[in-house]
Write a protein that binds this DNA or RNA. Structure first.
Lengths: 140, 140
DNA sequence: CTTGCACCTCTAGTCGCTAGAGCATGTAGG
DNA sequence: CCTACATGCTCTAGCGACTAGAGGTGCAAG
């Protein structure tokens, strides 16, 4: 019960084994203590930290931002203004990405609908790609 | 007028100079003829190909798919079934990505709204990240 | 005691570029 | 013709965030 191996840590946190080692190598996760046979031995706090990282990565935060968020978490007396700023910036990114993907979706739909399933020289997919003037959505 | 330099090709196609050389190196664009002084000299057809590539990249197609699409374009007698399949697959990807980004957006909004602008230990941003159980959107 | 999985380190590869070093070439003005 | 200076050339290395593989060690069950 005492010793959490890297495999258990992976199962409990949802972060893959090589990724855990990678996070250690870039200093996102502190190097844990080692067993007699040089195997990593994690504490419950490490698992929580890994879960935090994983969730943040799933939300699309980059490692630099996560580093800041973790530093804030480690010092709960601090103002959460930075955390708020990071989350807000990410929100704006996500909103922009959604908008651009919607435009893209519309363009792809036109392409797919316009495909007559015949020969390439009548195919709207190729045609739209070849001539951007035919693209009605000025997303780029 | 005859010789299009790589710089002109870049300006006309919207693909950056180093990127053009990169596309040549991976075989996406054929190596053009060279001037006396070993400088690349492009034809209008190359510019069209670069514009095609650029548009496809903007639509998020990966290089492997673009290779297939270009091969199809080069042989207009072929059935456009593959082009259709590639575009459809990309459309499904985009739709999934939009769905997941919408869930993500909702989660980020909760985080940002819940931030009391006080100390970190009351901040919902950090809290939600630390405990995925508090995340109401089962997007992952 | 042996089998076999989990763990270790280290290097290299992925994708689609981008940046930089250190040269050669092409062009416009004086 | 000479000089600047932009643009071109090749080559190597770096980015982010992992992922894969080689080649070796640790450990628990049968």
């Amino acid at each position: 019960m005492r010793k959490i191996t890297i495999g258990d840590a992976a199962r409990q946190s949802g972060v893959k084994v090589p990724t855990i080692r990678y996070y250690e190598s870039i200093g996102l996760l502190a190097a844990p203590s080692r067993s007699e046979g040089n195997q990593r031995s994690y504490e419950p706090a490490d698992i929580r930290r890994l879960a935090f990282i994983r969730h943040a990565r799933e939300l699309g935060f980059e490692v630099g931002s996560i580093r800041t968020l973790l530093a804030l978490q480690d010092d709960p007396d601090q103002s959460c203004a930075s955390a708020d700023a990071i989350a807000k910036a990410r929100l704006i990114e996500v909103e922009q990405r959604i908008r651009s993907l919607m435009a893209l979706k519309a363009e792809l739909e036109i392409m797919v609908e316009g495909c007559g399933h015949g020969r390439v020289d009548q195919c709207r997919v190729i045609e739209v790609l070849a001539d951007h003037g035919q693209c009605m959505h000025p997303h780029h």
